[in-house]
Design a binder for these strands. Structure first.
Length: 822
RNA sequence: GCCGAAGUGGCGGAAUUGGUAGACGCGCUGGACUCAAAAUCCAGUGGGGCUCACACCUCGUGCCGGUUCGAGUCCGGCCUUCGGUACCA
């Protein structure tokens, strides 16, 4: 009998819905498990295989938790603001709100068909004023605490998207991560969130959370903490001085020039008349370079001298001041002391412009007089370094730092690579920034009582380079809340990473309208216990969410320090080697597979394809195998149900009264039970499915077994193991067994029986000189001498022992016997 | 360039702490069922040698070398692929 997937799956989906199986009672947090997957971005494309690959296996994991007795909360929502909807609107003229709502309707149906345990009463969408009102509220709180500020800054600008991109949204080849066009630089006044204030805690709290080491490492590198000294270089014939940050104060005697970033405010003051024109030309040239170009290591070094000189504070030597694009204004002090002898970039630069190279650290095994072929950046003996000469440079770092502090030339400092989070977007489809610009009062926050600042529907969102909202006079014109004079609203909208930095909190009660989220529930239900999503969010979303979480904690709304206790990534499903995307035209539509084979087959196939964290290239080659498995299972239950009809419950199986075949089935069932549960727990879905297939193969003899009790025992456990993997089929099988309650309605749990999985015979491998010669059946924990004797008498072994001398015997109990002969 | 991960049959992939390499599935081959096909079921399936056959021998986890009684697994060097990152002073 063929498994009628559509009929049965819809039946159980309806059942779970109507019987509130997927509904979570949040008032019972005692054994709670908040299971979260990254919410969906309804960008015009529908649900594709990549989404399925995230959501279906995650649901399998969460269903196992439910069976374990956890009160599991699985919500789903829509990350509904953002560029793709707006770009789609620009192309087609369909309003982003209309296309988004329509997409969500379709996606919701697709999501329901997966058969997950989403509690739909908690659904949310970020483009809802009831949601984004709290983005604005969050903004005001950050503003209140001085953590939201405006600054004129060089920003990445995408000509095609007509918007600002955060540094991390620009790809390594200098293109926009969304549209893949080249990014240029532009100066704009922008809103920033001061994530750097939390740099230290974001770094140190990584130790508290169960995340992949790889992801933690990426965040550590992104935050980029370094220890060093900030010191001042005075300037010849000037009262000005240049602060520089260095991690290598031990090389201070080797400074032969100083470099400023071209954007550095001192550049103008320190440029001599003769150099003015070349400096201006250079600055102009650098303006057209993207940051990626500037930072390219393959590009030849460029720079120009200012004509002025700085004074090395330790030896009073005068060194020239240059500007060069390899020095970034955004990092450290925007200026470096150049030590070409011991820094690769400085070395390259000095070689190109014939600047002196002074050796101050001696490499072991070389002489002070040897010419440096490349920068020596390791630790060595300090030379040419005044009173520090002779010290090992790692000690020298500390001694010079002490000296600089004592002489008040410099101070020890910790520096971070992390930059503040630029949240302004010159875009329409996002959260309006709740600030009013008044000529008299300056920037004035919108009073809380006036939130939300509603994003108007009627806006010309065609890209012109300025924010689309600027052209909506009705929106823009407002009286100042302080002085009541005519003022203008801020026309920018927020980065959508603001939306996703706290959505997990809103899920707990998306209907609350007098608070950002239900703080009482959050105190009980946070942190998210298991969060599953793509590794591509390692340094953006996952860092921003941690920052916002810590901020909300600091204003008393949360108790815990971290939002996501356990994080796991699923791999990427590619197609023909490339990530699936609409533009590449390689998106695989899951619907046709769901239609043909059903959700359970599709979900199990995705899990069976390979390791979850690896992902892989899409192929539908093997899906028939899973389909066969599902049909064989259904067949098995239908065939044997009559046999076990009278049985409702059994307490245990008496192992001693089983035939050899029965015992083998009993053992295999328990071994599989152990493996399947352990594998799903570790998200090793592929081997869990394989184990269940292996058990089914073994059960082909079950119809010959005249033992209804054992048959019932095996089938009951089989359905249980199947239930997280193929929940619809498992519920059906459970019902075929005559169970009154559904598995997930009244969660059941089976533990494997320890005594059942113990084998009494074991295969012992016999090697001679490390080569496999025989595999013999022996009693488990059998007598060593007897086993050795038997092994040597085995003809396959004996013939290799003839006329040889046994030198050594290695015996590992129940595993191997290796006889070494000469 | 640097950092990280990986490389196993025709294919996707298995393989606790070093201990039978190739579980499970796809595909393929043969057989059963059928008028026939599909579906299903049964058997076989890493390469080579030898054999009527059973068996047996031998090679084999990217390449070269090492440690070990024994290496897919550990160590050193190389090659390839995929991720991450971009002069961080």
């Amino acid at each position: 009998m063929k498994y009628p997937a559509q009929e049965i799956e819809l039946k159980w989906q309806k059942f779970w819905e109507e019987n509130k199986v997927s509904k979570t009672d949040l008032s019972e947090p005692e054994k709670k498990h908040y299971g979260l997957v990254m919410f969906i971005y309804p960008s015009g494309a529908k649900l594709h295989c990549g989404h399925w690959y995230n959501y279906a296996p995650a649901d399998t994991f969460f269903r196992l938790k439910k069976l374990q007795g956890y009160n599991i909360f699985e919500p789903m929502g829509y990350d509904a603001f953002g560029l793709p909807a707006e770009n789609f609107a620009i192309k087609t003229g369909i309003h982003p709100q209309d296309s988004t709502i329509k997409n969500i309707e379709e996606i919701r149906e697709q999501l329901r068909r997966i058969g997950t345990l989403y509690d739909w009463d908690h659904e949310l969408m970020t483009c809802d004023p009831k949601y984004y009102k709290w983005n604005q509220w969050l903004f005001l709180k950050l503003y209140e605490k001085g953590l939201a500020y405006r600054q004129n800054a060089p920003v990445n600008w995408c000509e095609s998207c007509q918007t600002v991109l955060a540094n991390e949204q620009v790809q390594s080849d200098g293109t926009c991560e969304r549209c893949h066009n080249f990014v240029i630089k532009k100066n704009l006044t922008q809103w920033f969130f001061k994530i750097t204030q939390y740099a230290e805690e974001l770094l140190s709290d990584l130790e508290k959370i169960d995340w992949p080491e790889k992801t933690k490492l990426m965040q550590r590198n992104w935050i980029g903490k370094s220890y060093g000294v900030e010191l001042k270089f005075r300037i010849v014939d000037s009262d000005e001085y240049i602060p520089v940050f260095t991690t290598r104060p031990d090389t201070l005697f080797g400074v032969t020039y100083v470099v400023l970033a071209p954007e550095h405010p001192l550049v103008e003051k320190l440029t001599t008349v003769e150099n003015r024109q070349s400096v201006l030309n250079y600055i102009e040239k650098v303006k057209h370079e993207t940051e990626i170009e500037r930072l390219s290591t393959v590009k030849e070094k460029t720079g120009v001298p200012l004509g002025s000189f700085a004074i090395n504070p330790v030896n009073n030597e005068q060194v020239p001041i240059w500007i060069a694009d390899y020095v970034l204004f955004t990092y450290g002090t925007g200026a470096v002391m150049a030590v070409p002898g011991h820094d690769e970039r400085d070395f390259e630069f000095a070689k190109k412009f014939n600047l002196p190279i002074q050796k101050v650290i001696l490499e072991k095994g070389t002489k002070p007089g040897d010419e440096l072929q490349k920068a020596f950046v390791d630790i060595g003996e300090m030379i040419n370094s005044g009173q520090f000469t002779g010290l090992n440079s790692d000690i020298g770092i500390e001694k010079i730092s002490d000296y600089l502090e004592a002489e008040k030339i410099g101070v020890r400092k910790v520096n971070y690579r992390l930059r503040d989070w630029l949240i302004s977007r010159q875009r329409y489809w996002g959260t309006p920034i709740p600030i009013i610009h008044c000529e008299k009062c300056g920037e004035v926050p919108v009073p809380e009582k006036d939130l939300p600042v509603i994003l108007p529907y009627d806006v010309d969102f065609k890209p012109t380079g300025e924010s689309p909202l600027t052209r909506n006079e009705k929106f823009m014109n407002i009286n100042c809340p302080k002085c009541n004079s005519p003022s203008r609203r801020d026309p920018d909208t927020m980065d959508t990473f603001v939306d996703s930095s706290w959505y997990h909190l809103r899920f707990l009660n998306p209907h609350i309208d007098d608070a950002m989220f239900d703080t009482q529930l959050a105190k009980k239900w946070m942190p998210v216990d298991t969060y599953i999503g793509g590794a591509e969010h390692a340094t953006m979303h996952l860092l921003y969410a941690r920052f916002i979480h810590k901020f909300l904690r600091d204003i008393g709304m949360l108790d815990c320090d971290e939002p996501y206790q356990k994080l796991r990534h699923q791999g990427t499903i590619t197609n023909q080697g490339a990530k699936m995307s609409k533009s590449r035209g390689n998106v695989v539509n899951p619907d046709e597979f769901v239609e043909k084979y059903g959700a359970d087959v599709f979900r199990m196939y995705l899990m069976f394809m390979g390791p979850y964290e690896t992902g892989g290239d899409w192929s539908d080659k093997g899906i028939v195998g899973v389909n066969r498995f599902v049909n064989r299972v259904y067949e098995l239950f239908n065939t044997l149900s009559a046999k076990v009809r009278s049985i409702q419950y059994i307490d245990n199986i008496d192992i001693d009264n089983l035939t050899i075949t029965e015992k083998s089935i009993y053992r295999k069932t328990n071994q599989t039970l152990k493996k399947v549960v352990e594998d799903i727990e570790e998200l090793r879905f592929n081997t869990a499915v394989a184990a269940l297939m292996g058990l089914l193969n073994e059960l082909s003899v079950l119809n010959k077994v005249e033992n209804p009790k054992l048959t019932f025992y095996v089938l009951e456990r089989f359905a249980f193991m199947l239930s997280p993997l193929a929940p619809h089929l498992a519920e059906e099988c459970w019902q075929i067994l005559g169970k009154r309650k559904s598995i997930f309605e009244e969660p059941v749990w089976f533990t494997y029986e320890k005594k059942a999985i113990v084998e009494d015979k074991v295969t012992l491998v016999v090697q001679v000189n490390g080569k496999l010669r025989a595999a013999i059946e022996v009693d488990i924990d059998g007598d060593e001498e007897l086993i050795k004797q038997n092994a040597k008498q085995d003809p396959r072994v004996a013939k290799f022992l003839e006329s040889k001398q046994i030198i050594k015997e290695i015996y590992v109990k129940n595993k191997i016997l290796n006889i070494v002969v000469k």
